[in-house]
Design a protein around this nucleic acid. Structure first.
Lengths: 182, 182
DNA sequence: AACAGTAGCGGAGACTATCTCCACTTAGTA
DNA sequence: TACTAAGTGGAGATAGTCTCCGCTACTGTT
């Protein structure tokens, strides 16, 4: 990629992050372009869809997921504790942006989605948690990582839609955790 | 209201129901107007916002909720059976329209919403189920009707976002049910 | 340093959806 | 039948998405 194109790309991502934070994820993309000082065509060439742009913005989010994941997986203790910790971490991670829970949970089950691969870390970590609980025979038989993600995703989506802070759904996550365990 | 205005109103509601079913909740309102054979102005005078129109459409939905509710509440059997039946009925009822789970679950916690009062029947029925389980001391202490609604709403929302049929989330509802019970 | 070739740019404008305005039509009434 | 105000419809204002293409200027070559 040419140097000036790279500069524009970076600038668009940087500006978009601010615009989306200030105006919500529905903000006009033309506004993003104008604020970044580029034409609409330039924005759309770099990011054909809104999702592609979100994808780029989320790169820093992926780093954060990685970090949190390692922390939780390092935990050695009761299965229920591990599970609750993971569910909470998961809910928090997907709720960092308004609209995140719904978007990420939908992307999780749809490999076509441009942000699907960003979810890989989350899916992988959930799988690891499931494996550990399975090894200790603490989990229901009919449960897999996908279902865990769906359940937490659902709870987080509800909180997000109601403009509630994620912290407030802890009791729901405990219910989910107890339902997941034997 | 003048007779012709009433006719137009009824026709718009009838047509909108079909259009929304076929094209999703985001269908163009101008399309609804055109299909109903009225001008956009007529539609917007009767229903200033999209939500107002949805509200009108949902009247028949309320009737259906009432009916289903009575059926489930008439069930006499094991607490877990009752709960699972209700969770399934609930999920199905809020999933009748694409986008319904998210909209209804959000409205459930927001009394300002134009469709909030439509949820009264659902909330009431859930409360009745909770009361019965509570009487039999089958429910966790920290659980109330609101939380039950949030959990099922979340699961249904995930299914809806992923374009899965509601029937497919039965296992998730069982997990939720087991988590809710003592 | 000058040049050529092309990657990349910008923004006008096509397209679509929402919603308003007001000249015109028609139901209800006397 | 004639009056009047409730009701209508659809053109057009406004706003967002996305494309097209003539022009600009970056980069590698000489």
């Amino acid at each position: 990629m040419r140097a000036d194109a790279q500069r524009n790309r970076d600038r668009i991502v940087e500006v978009a992050r601010e615009v989306f934070r200030d105006h919500g994820y529905d903000a006009s993309l033309d506004l993003v372009a104008k604020t970044a000082g580029v034409g609409a065509g330039t924005l759309y060439r770099h990011f054909p869809t809104r999702e592609n742009l979100l994808d780029a913005i989320m790169q820093s989010w992926v780093d954060r997921v990685q970090e949190t994941t390692e922390k939780v997986l390092a935990f050695e203790g009761e299965p229920r504790d591990l599970l609750v910790r993971w569910l909470e971490a998961y809910a928090e991670l997907i709720s960092l942006h308004k609209g995140g829970p719904a978007k990420l949970t939908a992307a999780m089950g749809n490999p076509q989605s441009p942000i699907a691969h960003k979810c890989g870390v989350l899916a992988g970590a959930t799988q690891q948690v499931v494996d550990r609980l399975r090894a200790e025979d603490a989990l229901r038989e009919d449960v897999d990582a996908v279902r865990v993600c769906q359940l937490v995703g659902g709870v987080a989506t509800v909180a997000d839609n109601a403009d509630q802070p994620v912290a407030q759904v802890r009791p729901l996550l405990e219910v989910v955790a107890d339902g997941l365990l034997r």
